[in-house]
Structure formats: C-alpha cells, structure tokens
Design a protein around this nucleic acid. Sequence first.
DNA 1: CCGTGTTAGTGTCAACCATACACAAACAGG
DNA 2: CCTGTTTGTGTATGGTTGACACTAACACGG
Lengths: 222, 222
Amino acid sequence: MPYTYTHPHPAVTTDIVVFTVETQALKVLLIRRKGPPHEGQWALPGGFVRIDESVDACAVRELEEETGLKGIYLEQLYTFGDPDRDTRERVISVAYYALVPLQGLELRSGTDAADAAWWTVGGLPVLAFDHGRIVTMARARLTAKMEYSTVGLLFMPDSFTLSDLQGLYETVSGRPRDKRNFRKWILSLDVVEETGERKAEGAHRPAMLYRMKTPGNVKIIK
Amino acid sequence: MPYTYTHPHPAVTTDIVVFTVETQALKVLLIRRKGPPHEGQWALPGGFVRIDESVDACAVRELEEETGLKGIYLEQLYTFGDPDRDTRERVISVAYYALVPLQGLELRSGTDAADAAWWTVGGLPVLAFDHGRIVTMARARLTAKMEYSTVGLLFMPDSFTLSDLQGLYETVSGRPRDKRNFRKWILSLDVVEETGERKAEGAHRPAMLYRMKTPGNVKIIK
DNA sequence: CCGTGTTAGTGTCAACCATACACAAACAGG
DNA sequence: CCTGTTTGTGTATGGTTGACACTAACACGG
C-alpha cells in the first residue's frame, strides 16, 4: 500500500545513545547492522518514527524493542538533518540519550549476543552513518550535565555506597574528586539517604549503603 | 508530480523563535498566518524542509525569506514531534532560536507590516499550533545561556556603552545587577574592548563606547 | 588472639569569588 | 556658575570551594 504526497517527504528516525557505567568505564550500547546500508557495521539502536506515535514515544519504544529496557531516563539530544546522512533516502534523525543503571544490564533475550554489545567510549569502532558524531555530542552533554545536575545518580543501582558513587562521578566526568569534599557535596544536595544497611565485602570496614530519596528524579543544581 | 513511499512519512518543518531587545523589553517576532489551519492567528516564522537541504540550512533560509535577516546567530532548540501538532498531516517541527541586534530590526520589505510584528514576551497572544510551548522553551534556554555564556552580546549593535549592556542583561535575565560588579565581570571576561570613542547624549558625562573583540563569537563561561 | 592490610568515615583552615556599597567626574542647560 | 543627570571607580565582607591526615571497622594469617 503506497503513500503519496504532493511534495517529497523525508523519513524520520530516532537514534539512542544508551550509556551505562561498568567496571570503571563509561560504555555505550551498539548494535550490529543486519542489512544495507553499512551492513555489518556498528550503529546506535533506533528506528523509524511511526506515523501515529510521537517522536518521544518512538524513542521509548525502540529502546525497549532493542534492549528490553523500560522506565529508563531518556532525554532528547539533538536533531541531525544533513541531506546525505543516509544513502537510501532522505532521513532526519532525532537523537536521544539514555542512562541505565548497572543492575539493569540484561539485554533483550531475543537479540543475539554478538549483535548487541557495550563498548567503552574512547575505544569505539567506526560507526555507521553519522552516529560517531551523535555519540560525541551525547558524551559532551552528559559530562556537562554531571556538573550542574544529579543525573549521575541514575547510573546507580537501588542501593550503593558513597565510594561507589564517587567512583562513578570520577569515571563519567573524568575529574578526580576529594573524598571528604565529595561526600559533603552530595549530602548537602539532599538527594540520597542512608538505607540503614551496610555492605560488607573484603577485609575492611563495611560501608554504609545509600539510596536515592526520589528515584528517577533529576535535580538541577545552583 | 506525486511522491510515493512504501511507508507513511511525516512532513518536517523548522520554526524559529527570533528574539530581540527593544525599549527595555525582550521581544519575539511573530507572523500572522495567511492560510489554514489557524488562519489569522499569530505563529512563529518557519516552513517545510526541502528534500535536498539540511535542516540547519532550512532554518537559515526561512529566517532570511521571512525577515530579510542574514548572518544571524541561530541555534537548534528542540524537536517537537507530537502526532497531532498539525491537523493537516503529521508534521514534526525542529525549532531554532535566533538573536538579532537592535540595529538589524528592518523586517523584510516584501512582507506587509501588519503581518509581521515584534511582540513583547509575557504579553504574547495565543499562538498557532504548539508555538506557545516552543517560545516558552526558547525563553528558558536563553535565560539559562545568559548565565554561562556571552550570548547577551549578540543583541548589541556594533558599538555600545556598558550601561546599555547592563540594561540588556537586566531585561533579558530579569535579575538587576550592581553597576560596579557588572563592569568588573564583563571586563574580566575579555570579550569587549574600548573603541576610543565616546557617546555624548543628554546633559551628563558622555559614556565610553565598546565593541565585541570577536563579533558573533560566543564564549562559554566557567 | 593479636598484628597487618585495606577501605570507610570524619573536620579545619586558607584561598578565592561574589556581593554590597558611595562618591567624584563630565557634561548640557538655564 | 549652579543644577541635574549619568558615567566611572575600589574596598571590605561573607560565603563557597578546595586542600589536606588520621582514626574506625573489618578479614585474614600467623
């Protein structure tokens, strides 16, 4: 069933930069392309916007379809609209980025493990289309947002230690942080609270466990 | 000549929030719609993305076509993609915002004066489509950016006094500023320089004129 | 059971930055 | 030459940020 217009229309997709932090490294989810163009190359998860769904809803749906992840923090990043982004037809991509916590790492069971993988940013392969550019911009936005909001907490599992949290901030934003100053800072923001439990691991003093006061909520600082 | 696709495609437009500052007020350029839908209502300037031009280029072109303004600061704002934004067909809008200096206020000679006008933000009429939402977001972005960059300078004519500049900052970001502190601050940023000329107007001490060191350049602060 | 190694947890002081604040200088006009 | 008006300038204070070192709690091995 063909669809006909009096003027040419572009196709519109969403592409999603899914970030997580694992083993002291910021990682991005990539999918190996199964068809042309760029067959076999790594690309961002994403897909075409359906005619009756909002662009936001498309991003949510694609994220779930390709990764099985639901209820994840998702924010629009930027729209990429160069006419030759895609060789098949004119495609405009609305890019989003998502942050998933350490614990929700299970990828969609349906997908072959070889076709979806977490890559450390900084060691990325050449990506399909202009997806390299998209990742670069997403990374810049994320590091900027780490400085003036509490997005960093979204990478954390339900409960965590302040040392874990400090480690996360250091790996994502690069910058090392002083232990005492970091703790003063994060506690003064009034966004985490003690769970009352301790995490005993290894031959040393056990650490207090914390949780977000309002899970999923992002606070803008200053 | 019809254009046919195997899947339905949305139309894509750009809409532009053009800001200026005039007589102590932040203003937005609005155009009265000449055809349905929302005929006669006020709306943002903008139009459909052509199939062979980039989305950025479309914004530049529309800005020039509808206002005659060229070489203006223009930045992508956000993409609005709700399925029922437009009653005619599915339309996704990539919104931009632009800042024009006081001196370049001449609107396109072709346009009837009654059909294009500067409106003070805060006193806007009900706008067509979701353009009200777009303006709100643009305003938020602008005030935020005033705090951590030198975008404010883009509203200034080629030469200006520091008092003028302070007045501009006060009207755009609301917040009043201390005269001495403002001058210390702006001078420490190293973005303006004295022209050597003075502006004598009225029965009082003439003010030193300044200009941007690198016109059109926006510096990120801190 | 005691010593060792390892991470958790805590306060103070100095440097820097942001803010508040008042008066002389330069001009036009009467 | 007096008045009214806007320009232009420095200092002191309070708050914020950043540097810095030792004790607490535990597991393990001897």
